[in-house]
Design a binder for these strands. Structure first.
Length: 580
RNA sequence: GCCCCCGUAGCUCAGGGGAUAGAGCAAUGGUUUCCUAAACCAUGUGCCACUGGUUCGAUUCCAGUCGGGGGUGCCA
């Protein structure tokens, strides 16, 4: 597809006045903007920056540039210090529709990545603890980033760095030995293990020696003690079963579940290497790397009892991944709380002499709170993800039944209502998670989570379903959506929609470059809003033979809007129902 | 104490040197003999936390202040 912004930038940059001012096409493209008010035009070039070099008022410069440009374009006008450009609407429509039709499900994708390998680590729950609403963030944001990068032509490796190691397992082992029961665990693994975990902390408050005992149990596990190892493996296996059910609901997959335990035998090498490179020093009986000079404090590598900490595991994991995958980028979708942790270990890897330290990227996100305070598995103040998903599905089912369209329309499909309720309800939860800047903290609110009006997943899905419905009817009427008279698409609503569709690939690219799925989510909302406005403003279907060319052009636009919305939703991991 | 992030409409949030600062929710009014009303249209609100600096121009960049959150050695 043509890049209109680049073309206009090139034309401006070719002008002698602009050349003399020292601006090349890339610099002009950087300055060129899209006016916030569409009435101003489609692209705008502000002339303020030329004022110094040309020693003239910006307004005068704008007039001069417009005069120089106008012989080969009719869509140029001057407003104040801006040169505004207007696209030729019919030709633009033909260009965009052809591109979407040709690229289909790959519209918005590109070869930017050139097949370079990128690791995305996400989700990474702690085994033996249930998924709460806080865990949805890494899971859903990470999966979206992975899909977006894959669409941009990177070879993506998805890693679930399971929290399947550490002192917490010492706690569980101690708890299980003190008051656990095998039957109870097997009946409901995560709920039971969580109960033990909570009970452990309650008892540890009375008897602090339990903490010591737990540390000892983990130290034994790390040494490879048979009994501890067996219990640990059992806990891991049982809880993984339950996680898989949630991932299935969300449609999320991984290429590797190599978690912390996977690196348990790869850490000796790291601590040896740190010592050999003179980075390790002893302090209060523990081994540390002193990063005070970089303003990063002191990083604890090895505890005084000889066991390691997660920073050592992260370094070992990074070294392993570089050797095993030879990544171009190694991306960690992990809460912003761990910012210092990442800055510390990435700095340590750099000090070890590995220049690829700079290819390790922490992609942080803000935390989820409840109205009555921080969520804590330990104290039981939690909202479970499964409950949220189920409630969203149930509410959706109620709406579907109330509306009745789906039950009548697709009664012969039988499970159509179940399927749609799942797609829409879960889609709503996922979509909302991807709607805001990931760095923002937020307070979980049931009413908001179950609101399906306005800028929400169901709103976007509804636009998609309506487009699908129009296209189904058109097919029944023997109308095509593959051609038509694009002069029918020069109305404001149609043109606004075309521009949003045209901008989708750029939104995908920016979302990938900034690891910020919300940029894509917002754009998909824009496309859906533009389609809704178009749908209301202009009647699409008509059986008038003299109107056929115009009707088919509108159908082509409807098909393109459906494709753009569908492609965007697919990258976000939200289903696109054909009916709702 | 020190470090990091955030502060924009009643609420939830976009925007991010430049043309009158935008959406959604909530509120009010309107739109269905017409392609799905989970929709569309209309109406109102802003010392863009504060103070200073850089700039032709700052809500946007820089410094400081205040407010909120997070982190800050034997959890992850």
């Amino acid at each position: 597809m043509r890049d209109y912004g680049q073309e206009i930038a090139a034309r401006i940059a070719a002008l002698p006045q602009v050349k003399d001012a020292g601006l090349d096409a890339a610099a002009v493209a950087e300055i060129l903007e899209v006016p916030q008010d569409a009435a101003m035009g489609d692209f705008a070039f502000p002339c303020f920056r030329l004022a110094k070099a040309m020693r003239k008022a910006p307004q005068a410069i704008a007039g001069e540039l417009a005069d120089a440009l106008s012989p080969d374009s009719c869509g140029v006008e001057v407003v104040g210090a801006y040169v505004n450009f207007r696209l030729e609407r019919g030709a633009f429509a033909a260009e965009v529709l052809a591109a979407v039709r040709e690229e289909g499900a790959a519209y918005g994708h590109s070869g930017l990545g050139g097949g370079r390998r990128v690791i995305v680590e996400y989700s990474s729950p702690n085994i033996a603890k249930p998924f709460h609403i806080g865990h949805i963030r890494s899971t859903v944001i990470g999966a979206a980033i992975a899909r977006i990068l894959a669409a941009l032509g990177y070879e993506v490796e998805r890693i679930n760095h399971l929290g399947d190691y550490g002192t917490q397992f010492g706690k569980l082992i101690v708890a299980y030995r003190r008051f656990g029961s095998k039957d109870e665990v097997e009946a409901a693994p995560i709920a039971t293990l969580l109960k033990y975990y909570v009970e452990f902390h309650k008892q540890a408050e009375q008897d602090p020696s339990l903490e010591e005992e737990a540390r000892a149990a983990f130290a034994a596990l790390e040494r490879g003690a048979e009994a501890e190892r067996e219990l640990w493996a059992w806990f891991r296996e049982e809880s993984l079963k339950e996680f898989t059910a949630v991932y299935d609901m969300l449609g999320i997959t991984f290429d590797s579940y190599a978690g912390e335990s996977f690196y348990s035998d790869k850490m000796r090498r790291i601590t040896d290497e740190l010592a050999a490179k003179g980075l390790l020093t002893e302090s209060e009986g523990a081994q540390i790397v002193d990063l005070d000079d970089c303003g990063l404090g002191k990083a604890l590598i090895k505890k005084s009892d000889g066991s390691t900490l997660y920073i050592t595991r992260d370094i070992a994991a990074a070294v392993y991944r570089k050797e095993h995958y030879d990544f171009h980028k190694n991306i960690y979708v992990v809460a912003s709380q761990q910012d210092l942790h990442f800055r510390q270990w990435i700095k340590i890897v750099e000090l070890m002499g590995y220049d690829w330290a700079h290819d390790c990227v922490h992609v942080p996100f803000g935390l989820v709170r409840l109205a009555d305070g921080a969520m804590s598995t330990r104290t039981g103040n939690v909202v479970f993800l499964l409950d949220v998903l189920n409630q969203a599905v149930e509410k959706t089912r109620a709406i579907i039944v109330e509306k009745g369209v789906l039950t009548d329309d697709a009664a012969e499909d039988g499970p159509a209502v179940d399927e749609a309720a799942a797609e829409i309800g879960i889609g709503a939860v996922v979509f909302q998670e991807l709607h805001n800047n990931r760095i923002k903290d937020y307070v979980f609110d049931w009413d908001k989570a179950l609101n399906f009006d306005g800028e929400t997943g169901p709103y976007v899905q509804y636009g998609y379903a309506r487009a699908a419905s129009v296209l189904r009817k058109a097919e029944g009427m023997g109308l095509s959506c593959n051609n038509g008279d694009t002069a029918a698409l020069t109305g404001d609503a149609a043109f606004a929609l075309l521009k949003k569709i045209y901008e989708l690939p750029q939104a995908v690219r920016e979302a990938g470059e900034k690891y910020e799925p919300s940029l894509l989510t917002r754009h998909v909302v824009d496309v859906a809003q533009a389609f809704s406005a178009f749908y209301h403003e202009e009647r699409i279907l008509s059986d008038d033979p003299t109107e056929r060319g115009r009707t088919e052009a509108k159908l082509a636009l409807t098909a393109a809007a459906k494709q753009a919305i569908g492609n965007g939703l697919a990258l976000l991991g939200v289903a696109a129902p054909e009916r709702m």
